[in-house]
Computed example of a mutant assay.
Amino acid sequence: MPVETDLKDAYQLLYDKHEPLKALQRYDGILKQYPENLVATIYKAAALEKLYFGSSDWHNGQTLENSRDLLGNALILAQKRGDRSKIALVYFRHFIHNFNSKKYAEAQTYMAKCKEYGYQDDTLPMWEYQLQRKLDKLAQKGVKVEPAKTITTPVEEPKDSKQTTEKENTSTSFATASTPKFRTDWYQTSNTVVLSIFTANLPKNKECVTLQVSKKNKRDLEMTYPIPDASSEFQYNLSLSHEVDPENIQLNIFTKKMEITLAKLTKVNWRTLEYTNESENVSTFQQPKIGSKGTSPSGSLGYPTSSKKSIDWSKVDLSDDEDENSGTPDAFFQKLYADADPDTKRAMMKSYMESNGTALNTNWEDVSQAPVETSPPEGMELKHW
């Protein structure tokens, strides 16, 4: 069997079938016959990483050290060949290794190196964004993370590598993270929080997604899955502002987004999705009811949303003596539009028209930034005629 076929099968075991142990065995077999096979060396290290983080039997320092040593050997092989694209790939895998190990200074340096060598991958902006979030969180805690000054390399880089006008490996500055190729939105009810992740790099199916909330603090959410037709993973993690049920998580995948539904442990109104210093300042969740006179603590009716602009629903008045059609949704939105300010009207019209009637947004600041995507109801798909 050609080595290319073995490499392809091993890669599918590692990323598509989520069987890192079998992938490790396959890569071992390849390296016995071809000790200097660069691809097998790189992804054997990745298989060990997955076993370290995913299996209690492999969760020890030796597993992680073996993975790191393999990446060091891979860098030697890539440098001997003088292939900049392969050197860039090895630097990127070094970044992943250090990021997952929470060594953010080293990860920051390896990110800069893989970009320096022209690494190309659709998920690179997402990884930059995730790294910057980690660095920002540490900065908020007063922890200053300096990039590693040098990267130890066992051999000199090939002379035919691209020359630079400045000295390399003396100090590496980290470029500001570019806009990630995904965005998020969320809303809440009295019992649940729904998080939407919009991305072009959706998983093939639910089965290939690892989604969990820490059972210890019931706040840390992590999601990973292999990017189809790519050599990297999509990772998303955050610390939620309040506790949720780790055993009650739902995931739905649509044409342009993923939707994660989390069950609240307490019926409180979340001020933010992600944990901040003000997260503990909560109020009991009060769902507005039609015809009720209950108000929010500020004295006006409110509805939980991630929108930056709040609407005082107590000012939207549909009097009881209007005709019988006044209770319909159309009448409600007509009244809302009629009483709205000019910016709100513009936002409502633009969002409704551009989304083909599937979205209605009252915040002109949000709507004016970009076209509003069509979001068909669950179970339905958009078709162009």
Rank of each mutant, 00 (worst) to 15 (best):
N98A: 07
N98S: 02
F99V: 00
N100R: 13
S101H: 08
S101I: 03
Y104P: 13
E106T: 03
E106H: 06
A107P: 05
A107L: 04
T109R: 04
Y110A: 11
M111N: 07
M111I: 15
A112W: 00
C114F: 15
K115E: 02
K115R: 11
Y117L: 12
G118K: 00
T123H: 14
L124Q: 09
P125D: 00
P125H: 02
P125N: 06
M126W: 07
M126L: 15
W127I: 10
E128D: 03
L131N: 00
L131W: 00
R133F: 04
K134G: 03
K134V: 06
K134E: 12
L135D: 01
D136L: 15
D136A: 14
K137N: 07
K141G: 09
K141E: 09
G142I: 08
G142W: 09
V143A: 15
V145Q: 06
E146Q: 08
A148E: 06
A148Q: 00
A148S: 04
K149Y: 06
I151C: 07
T152S: 10
T152K: 09
T153K: 08
T153G: 10
P154E: 11
P154C: 07
E156S: 15
E157V: 15
E157R: 14
K159G: 10
K162A: 11
T165G: 12
T165M: 14
T165R: 10
E166C: 14
K167R: 03
N169H: 06
T170I: 14
S171D: 07
T172K: 02
F174S: 01
A175V: 01
A175F: 13
T176C: 05
T176D: 10
T176H: 02
T176Q: 11
T176G: 12
T179S: 10
P180R: 06
F182P: 04
D185G: 08
W186N: 01
